[in-house]
Design a protein around this nucleic acid. Structure first.
Lengths: 110, 110
DNA sequence: AAACAATATCGTAATATTGCAATATAAAAA
DNA sequence: TTTTTATATTGCAATATTACGATATTGTTT
């Protein structure tokens, strides 16, 4: 096998997993941090920033975009990327949800 | 190729990626949600809860543990698992950091 | 139009992940 | 001590990811 059994989990679980997976690579964390710093930039800026080739960066951007964490606007010759807030809200909500639960329970393992 | 170039990124970026990657599978999201609900449980409980075999669940638990998101205490015959708060704090901090930045910038893409 | 610039896609090799049957390990119960 | 229970590990097949050279695409300049 090797294929994830997505159909056995809830939509919410699958959506959260897609978001988390998209952030599960240091290059994509670095891209998010860079976008946060510069607010907006084109692909070429990221290629200059990261130790990766243009096709590899393009692929990482595509994954972040598919997951809904960034968005890109065509701007003439280039494409302007920036963070997509709704995607971030979704995964941020997951951690807040967990934190609230943990605070109520004051959990001490076993 | 195929191996992530971890040495080209900062420790912080690699750590965040490891945490996010560990959550990048619906089964592992489901395990975290289940642990949150029941506070503490043994591996067998999760095997009954999820549509996955015992070895597969065991492997997912191992990954969550390696990433620092859960911890397990040996309890006689079985192992008692629960959420490990410090790991969660780390990744939660990342999203809070992003949110604070975005609020300041009121970013409108491009 | 031709050359250039920015980005995406294709093809492919290397590696990693997913899932499970079979088996190992270790403690508890009989 | 044998059996049962709970979990981990091994081995392997199927699939996914990572990375990049080569190439395609599309808009801009000259």
């Amino acid at each position: 096998m090797g294929a994830t059994k997505t159909d056995h989990f809830t939509d919410n679980q699958n959506e959260l997993a897609v978001l988390a997976k998209a952030l599960g690579h240091p290059a994509r964390i670095a891209i998010m941090e860079y976008l946060l710093k510069v607010d907006t930039c084109i692909c070429g800026d990221i290629v200059n920033e990261l130790p990766l080739s243009q096709p590899t960066v393009s692929q990482h951007l595509k994954e972040l975009k598919n997951a809904g964490l960034i968005k890109g606007n065509i701007d003439g010759n280039s494409i302007c990327y920036c963070i997509n807030e709704p995607g971030l809200e979704k995964i941020k909500g997951f951690f807040e949800h967990i934190t609230v639960h943990l605070q109520k329970k004051r959990n001490e393992c076993c």
